[in-house]
Design a protein around this nucleic acid. Sequence first.
DNA 1: ACCTGAACACCGTTCAAGT
DNA 2: ACCTGAACACCGTTCAAGT
Lengths: 223, 223
Amino acid sequence: MGTARHRRDRPLDPAKIVEAAVMLSKQPDRHALSARRLGEQLGVDPTAVYRHFASMDELVKAALDAIWRDAARLIPRSLPWRAKLETIGHVFFQVIVEHPAVGIDAYRLSTNGPGEEAIVDMVLSCLEQAGLSDDHVVDFYAVLSSTVISHASAQAAERIETHEVVPPDERRWIEPPPNPVLVRFPSLVRHIDGLTSLDQPRVFELSLSVVLDAIESLTATAT
Amino acid sequence: MGTARHRRDRPLDPAKIVEAAVMLSKQPDRHALSARRLGEQLGVDPTAVYRHFASMDELVKAALDAIWRDAARLIPRSLPWRAKLETIGHVFFQVIVEHPAVGIDAYRLSTNGPGEEAIVDMVLSCLEQAGLSDDHVVDFYAVLSSTVISHASAQAAERIETHEVVPPDERRWIEPPPNPVLVRFPSLVRHIDGLTSLDQPRVFELSLSVVLDAIESLTATAT
DNA sequence: ACCTGAACACCGTTCAAGT
DNA sequence: ACCTGAACACCGTTCAAGT
């Protein structure tokens, strides 16, 4: 018992907490990541996380930053700017949806960590490569990142709510209106079939195209 | 005691529950709207809401739909399509931010109610008036509505987190990075001042302009 | 000096027990 | 037949009490 005295239990490396949080967040369950489940997973007291993170939101930020770091590594280095931004958009959409319990909050949390720095730098350099002015680089970084993250968070929320991957033709963005008293809304009646066939991934694709087209049209003007 | 027997307490009109929920949701507090606070507000049992709504999410949907209904009434009837869509965007951004406790969830909930029907019809008719094809009307409705709602929900979340309206120059979209080891990220270094001066309302304005410009460019092609 | 975990003040929701 | 509210299984977080 003498030799093991000083470090009988590991001192609970914060990186281990983040790793466990990332693992737990893969479950499509609103409560997959809680202080108690984290303690159970790590075999420590449920309140141990508060010695390393000021709040659960801070831990969620750290988990998202780790996810950003790993996602940034998946992006091929040399691609034309538009293909690279499309790839970044799709990869980040996917990792957010794959970690729904933290992805659902990505729309409202900046991580302020090294993973965020890496991906922001990557997006900015694509926009520079596209030939945008300094002002436009910053503006379109903001528009692009909020577009990707907000649609991905919404899709993460949908995955949590349905609690399973339902077939694409049942994941409706808008439900058909139940009541037939829609004479007051002729445009809604006219487009109701189109609206009910929308789904979140398609709306994300459309939104991403709109932003990338806007960037491309600015570069065409410049050259 | 005989005469008041049948309806001593009011039967708790669901519309009264929704009204109370809308009032409570004005507080910039994550827990402003709960079953217990609603019961306290209405003078009834905390679980009374579950006799009229299947879950708290369903009540939040009903509250948002009531907010949509009132917001739709604020939109001037006859305006050119672009000015009208800008007005709709600004009004909806504002009412979501003014009801942060439910607005924070608007990005992930469709209300499927009459308020939603009214505003969807209004947006669709603007897009028809702009001269878009049927397919483009549906697509750009989706892009436009998700843009407005996601930025507004993010701003509602920010209001809740700060718990008070802080001066605009302190509401940073991205925090300046704390560590100076940013040599690996030259684009981030180059644009760091621009990035830290971004705020949510400005990013919303930029995003809205991008979408409206995309619509306008399609109409210019058509005519 | 550092860590632990009992405890506080809440949640959303269910259902046995009442009127 | 309808409604009630006690109770269940959780939350995030704090801080008095220990080692």
